[in-house]
């Protein structure tokens, strides 16, 4: 029999880390997946004691597996999340040491950088944290029109389908940035000879290239202009988006991934990072 799909949630016993638990429970529920609670320790505890330590002993838990592993936290989480049946890791951006000024804690950073599977990041200071009853209905997926982002889009649509989400695809026209050079790129039309014809054709082509949706996913294409991160935050706020899914290349080094950093700093909804390449 095929093993049931899983959602991984790393917990370190801190209150901050446990703030992601509601979201993890919710997506496990909605995706009909087993929740894999993982904690790293050299001294395994009996389950009730561990549950208490992790702060989840009073929560109604239905279908879960508790993993107590020794070793490096990042190694353990990434290894577990890489199993074939795992859909996603859900985690708080910070663990024990939450510093509002930092975008993500060093453990979280290690996990998102090394995971090849999607990671949902929950900021502990979000005004409204998802609880186990959270049901994401609308997901915002930015697409910059590059072939790499298109590859991530397939995964995003798969997740949206499993979560039962509608998807708002957003493309932001930008000033200060050149068009992607990779063959097959498609950003906002450079030439709009007769805009009423061009826009609809562009939207059709854009979706055909990058968002060939599973039939059950309702898609909408939005075109905005400005700073991409700001436009996404604005869109999420004004249109009641429940989460944002972002493609990224796995590096948050200085000068890279400006959009992700900005969204991580400002988002009020969970952010799913999908690695490309």
């Amino acid at each position: 029999m095929q093993e049931k799909a899983g959602i991984v949630i790393p917990l370190d016993g801190s209150r901050t880390a446990a703030l992601a638990f509601g979201a993890a429970q919710a997506v496990a529920e909605v995706m009909d997946a087993v929740l894999h609670i993982v904690t790293v320790t050299d001294q395994p505890l009996p389950e009730p004691e561990l549950m208490g330590k992790l702060g989840i002993d009073r929560l109604p838990l239905r279908d879960f597996v508790l993993h107590q592993e020794p070793g490096d936290v990042v190694d353990v989480v990434v290894s577990l999340a890489s199993r074939q049946n795992m859909l996603m890791t859900v985690m708080s951006s910070h663990g024990e040491t939450f510093n509002q000024g930092s975008l993500i804690g060093h453990i979280g950073m290690g996990i998102i950088q090394r995971s090849t599977y999607p990671v949902m990041v929950i900021r502990p200071d979000m005004k409204k944290l998802p609880d186990s009853n959270w049901r994401p209905r609308k997901a915002l997926v930015p697409l910059n029109g590059s072939p790499a982002a298109a590859a991530a889009m397939d995964r995003a649509l798969q997740l949206a389908e499993l979560m039962g989400c509608e998807v708002d695809v957003i493309h932001v026209a930008m000033q200060g940035q050149k068009r992607p050079r990779a063959a097959g790129s498609l950003t906002s039309p450079m030439y709009l000879d007769y805009p009423h014809h061009e826009w609809s054709a562009w939207a059709e082509e854009f979706m055909a290239r990058f968002a060939r949706r599973p039939p059950s996913v309702k898609l909408r294409l939005l075109h905005r202009e400005g700073v991409p991160a700001d436009q996404m935050i604005k869109q999420a706020e004004e249109n009641g988006e429940d989460l944002i899914m972002l493609a990224w290349q796995g590096s948050l080094e200085k000068g890279r991934a400006r959009t992700i950093k900005r969204i991580l700093a400002k988002t009020e909804v969970p952010l799913i990072l999908i690695k490309t390449g």
Binding site: A173, M174, K178, S188, E225
Partner: peptide
């Protein structure tokens, strides 16, 4: 002054 950009100016400016 608006270069580079990824879309025509009326899209950028509105």
């Amino acid at each position: 002054d608006y270069e580079p950009k990824t879309a025509p100016l009326d899209v950028i400016l509105g």
